[in-house]
Simulated scan of single mutants.
Amino acid sequence: MPTVEVADLKDDDFLLDVREDDEWEAGHAAAALHIPMSEFVARYGELTEAAPQDGRVNVICRSGGRSAQVTMYLAQQGIDAANVAGGMQAWEAAGRPVVTDAGAPGAIV
């Protein structure tokens, strides 16, 4: 499965966060699109509208398990997707910003 390290992501790379609502509300990457894994198939159209047509979809969750499942699903749909290794825990550990919807500092739960 294609995997990308947090350090290899650029600020303008497309990021899909598949964590649940309570995890998202506690803290997330500012520019990420949020579609919880539990709602992903029903809300798939939101991704196809928002994702770049010529770029990769980088999928992230808390630690990499759920995002790996969504990455595999996207690959089966013919979408260029990669799992973010280590998830939001690695994102935070790398010093990348974690925010709430209000823009305040967030936390990974």
Rank of each mutant, 00 (worst) to 15 (best):
S63M: 12
L47D: 00
P52Y: 06
S63D: 03
R43P: 06
A50Y: 10
S63I: 12
A42Y: 10
H34I: 04
E49D: 14
R66S: 09
P52D: 06
R66T: 05
D54L: 05
E39V: 06
I60L: 10
S67P: 02
H34Y: 07
T48Q: 11
R43V: 02
L33F: 08
M37E: 15
H34K: 11
C61P: 05
Q53K: 15
R56T: 10
E46T: 04
V57W: 01
R43I: 06
V57Q: 00
P36M: 10
Q69P: 03
G65T: 08
R62S: 11
G65K: 12
A51K: 15
V57T: 01
A50L: 10
G64W: 05
Q69F: 00
G55F: 09
I35E: 00
H34D: 05
A51H: 06
I35N: 00
A42V: 03
P52M: 10
I60H: 04
Y44M: 12
D54P: 03
R66K: 14
A68M: 13
H34V: 02
V59C: 06
M37N: 09
R43G: 06
A42P: 01
R62H: 13
A50I: 09
L33V: 05
I60Q: 05
P36V: 05
G65Q: 14
V57Y: 00
N58F: 12
V59W: 03
C61Y: 06
E39D: 15
G55I: 03
V59N: 03
A42R: 12
I35F: 02
A50W: 10
R62T: 09
L47F: 02
E46Q: 14
R43E: 15
Q53F: 11
I35D: 00
E49R: 14
T48Y: 09
Y44E: 13
A42C: 01
Q53S: 13
E46A: 08
V57N: 00
Q69M: 14
Y44V: 11
G65F: 08
A68G: 15
P36W: 11
A51L: 14
E39K: 13
C61H: 04
R56F: 01
A50S: 13
M37K: 15
S63N: 08
I35G: 01
P36L: 09
V57G: 00
G64Y: 02
Q69H: 09
N58S: 08
I35Q: 01
E46Y: 09
A42S: 12
S67Y: 02
L33C: 02
N58Y: 12
S67A: 04
G65W: 04
V57C: 01
P52R: 06
